[in-house]
Design a protein around this nucleic acid. Structure first.
Length: 491
RNA sequence: CGGGGUGUAGCGCAGUCCGGUUAGCGCAUCUGGUUUGGGACCAGAGGGUCGGGAGUUCGAAUCUCUCCACCCCGACCA
C-alpha cells in the first residue's frame, strides 16, 4: 500500500516513470532534462559498464579520456556532423562570475567573455580526430583502438529518465585504421559486441542492421545499429557503430604514410552505448509489480528475508542465513540479508519485487524445523520450498533459468509483434492496432521514407544484416525492392 | 519550443474559484508497547520558505505578473 505503480495497460509511460522513481533508480534534478542517478540505478549502470569494458578490452581496446569542452571551430570542419548536432549544443561563453553590483547574488562577468566559445561535447569525434592528427604519421601508428567512458550533453527538447536526458553517461569508441576493410571490420565487430551484450547480459533480443541514409549518424558513411522492441510495441535503438570512412580524417587532416610509401587519409569508426540501456532494460522485462532484472545485471541477485516472532528465533535464522549466504557467495552469487526489525515480511516482499531482485529467500521457524527455505523467483512470481542443503546449487541453476526465461519471453514477444505486410493499407492498420516491428518492402529512397514517416510516424529502424533477399514491391510506391526492412514507431 | 495540466511536510493529497484565527488529512519518521509465513496495531511526539521572485492589499497558499520544474499531447531527436 505504500507504493503503487500505474499499470502498463492504463498508461505505459506513467508506468515507466513510476518504476524508475519507485524502484529508486533515478530522480529528476533541479536542472531541466538532467537526472540524478541514485545508488541502485547507478549500480545497474556499473554492472553494464564492467561487462562492456571487459568486452572492449578483450577486443583490443584501451580506455583514454578527452576534454569535456570542444572549441566551436572544430564543429564547422565536418559539414554533416555540425548540421546533425548544432541544434542541441550547450555553449560556454564566459569563464567567470562576479557579485551583482545591483544587489544580491552573482552575475556573469561581461569582461570574462571567451575569445572562442567552447561547446560542451555532444560526442567527441572532433576533439579526438584533432588529437589523432598528432598521433598518426605512419601505418605503424595504426590502428588506434580507443574507448572513452564519459558524459555528454545534448540539449533535447523533450527528455525522459534514462531514455533521453540532456546529460547522459556513455562510452564512445573511436578507432583509426589504415584500410577501409579494416575499419569496416571494426565497425561490424563492435555492433556484434553490442548485440552479444544485449542478448546474453540484458536478456534482450536485438536485430542487427544498418540505418537508412536519413537515420544515419551525422558524419558517417554507414551506421550499424542494434534495435530492440519494447513492451508497448515501440522500437528502441540500443547501440550504434559507425563506419566514418575518411570523413573525419579529411576534416582534421589526418594522413599517414603507408607501407608502400603513399600518403593517404586514415579510416575511422566510432561506436557507443549509453545509460539509455538502463531504460531499455526496464522496458524489456518489468511488469506491473515493478522492475524485473536479469540476474547478470542485478546489483544484488538474492535477498534473504527472515520471518520470526522472538529474538531466539531470529538469532537461529540469522545463523542459518549467514551459512547459506556464504555458500552462495562461494559460487559468485551476490546476496543481501534484510534483518530490519521494523518492517514486516510482506512489506519486504513487495519492496524487493519493486526493485527487481531476481531471487528472494524467506526463512521462518517452520523452515528451521523442516530444514527448508522458501525460494521465490521474480520473473514468474512463483515460490517453492527447497532443502537447505540444496540451496546453493538450486539458486545457481535458478539464476541461469531466469536469465534464459527473460530472454525467451522477450523473443516470443518480439515474434508475436513482428508482422510482414504487403500493402500500405495493411502497414497502417498493423501500426495502429498492435505496433511492433513491421517487415515491409521499400524502394530505397529517402523520399519514400520521409512520406511514410510524415503520414504514420513510423521510421525505418534498420535494414537487417540477415535480411533474406526476396523480390517485392515498395508498400508506398510499388517500385521493385529486393528485401524487406524493419519499420516501427520508436523512442 | 507550442497546446493542456500540475507544484502545499519525505510521499500522496484537501484547502485556492469567493483573500481573513495558530494551514489540515492519510502514509512515512521518532519514542514506548504489542506484533511478524504477503504491504501490522495502539498511544504520544516531531516535521511547512504553501515551487522561487516581484506586485496588489490592513491582511495572500488563495488575486496579478514573472521565472523554474515536472507530467500529457505535439514539434524535435544518432
Amino acid at each position: 500500500m505504500a507504493k503503487e505503480i500505474t499499470s502498463r495497460s492504463e498508461n505505459y509511460s506513467q508506468w515507466y516513470n513510476d518504476i524508475v522513481l519507485k524502484a529508486g533508480l533515478a530522480d529528476h534534478s533541479a536542472v531541466r532534462g538532467c537526472m540524478v542517478i541514485k545508488p541502485y540505478g547507478f549500480a545497474i549502470w556499473e554492472k553494464i559498464q564492467a561487462q562492456l569494458d571487459k568486452m572492449f578490452k578483450e577486443t583490443g581496446h584501451q580506455n583514454a579520456y578527452f576534454p569535456l569542452f570542444i572549441p566551436k571551430s572544430f564543429f564547422s570542419k565536418e559539414a554533416s556532423h555540425v548540421e546533425g548536432f548544432a541544434k542541441e549544443c550547450a555553449i560556454v561563453t564566459h569563464y567567470r562570475l562576479k557579485n551583482d553590483p545591483n544587489g544580491k547574488g552573482v552575475i556573469v562577468d561581461p569582461d570574462a567573455k571567451l575569445e572562442e566559445e567552447l561547446i560542451v561535447r555532444p560526442t567527441s569525434e572532433t576533439i579526438i580526430w584533432n588529437t589523432y592528427r598528432t598521433w598518426i604519421q605512419s601505418y605503424r601508428d595504426l590502428p588506434i583502438l580507443i574507448n572513452q567512458w564519459a558524459n555528454v550533453v545534448r540539449w533535447e527538447m523533450r527528455t525522459r529518465l534514462f531514455l533521453r536526458t540532456a546529460e547522459f553517461l556513455w562510452q564512445e569508441g573511436h578507432t583509426a585504421h589504415a584500410t577501409k576493410q579494416e575499419a569496416i571490420a571494426e565497425t561490424e565487430q563492435m555492433v556484434n559486441v553490442y548485440a552479444k551484450f544485449a542478448q546474453e547480459w540484458m536478456s534482450m533480443p536485438v536485430i542487427i542492421g544498418t540505418k537508412s541514409e536519413s537515420e544515419r549518424f551525422a558524419g558517417a558513411v554507414e551506421t550499424y545499429c542494434i534495435e530492440a522492441l519494447m513492451q508497448d510495441g515501440k522500437a528502441l535503438q540500443a547501440g550504434t557503430s559507425h563506419f566514418l570512412g575518411q570523413n573525419f580524417a579529411k576534416a582534421f587532416d589526418v594522413k599517414f604514410t603507408s607501407k608502400e610509401g603513399a600518403l593517404d587519409y586514415v579510416w575511422a569508426t566510432s561506436w557507443g552505448v549509453s545509460t539509455r540501456l538502463v531504460g531499455a532494460l526496464i522496458m524489456a522485462h518489468s511488469d506491473d509489480n515493478g522492475l524485473v532484472l536479469p540476474p547478470k545485471l542485478a546489483p544484488t541477485q538474492v535477498v534473504f528475508v527472515p520471518i520470526y516472532k522472538t529474538d531466539e528465533e531470529l538469532s537461529k535464522i540469522s545463523e542459518k542465513v549467514h551459512e547459506l549466504k556464504k555458500s552462495l557467495e562461494a559460487k559468485g552469487i551476490t546476496t543481501q540479508y534484510d534483518d530490519r526489525d521494523n518492517l514486516k515480511p510482506g512489506f519486504k516482499f513487495a519492496e524487493y519485487e519493486m526493485k527487481g531482485y531476481p531471487v528472494r529467500i524467506a526463512i521462518g521457524p517452520k523452515d528451521l524445523e523442516k530444514g527448508t527455505v522458501e525460494i521465490a523467483r521474480r520473473d514468474t512470481l512463483t515460490k517453492q520450498f527447497v532443502n537447505q542443503t540444496e540451496v546453493a546449487e538450486f539458486v545457481e541453476n535458478l539464476l541461469n533459468d531466469i536469465q534464459d526465461n527473460l530472454f525467451n519471453k522477450a523473443v516470443n514477444f518480439r515474434t508475436d509483434n513482428t508482422t510482414k505486410v504487403e500493402t500500405y493499407e495493411e502497414f497502417k492498420q498493423v501500426l495502429d492496432s498492435k505496433g511492433g516491428f513491421i517487415l515491409a518492402h521499400w524502394d530505397g529512397t529517402k523520399e519514400t521514407e520521409e512520406v511514410i514517416k510524415e503520414e504514420t510516424k513510423a521510421t525505418i529502424r534498420c535494414i537487417p544484416l540477415d535480411a533474406i533477399s526476396e523480390d517485392g514491391k515498395c508498400i508506398l510506391t510499388g517500385k521493385p525492392s529486393n528485401r524487406r526492412v524493419i519499420f516501427a514507431r520508436s523512442y
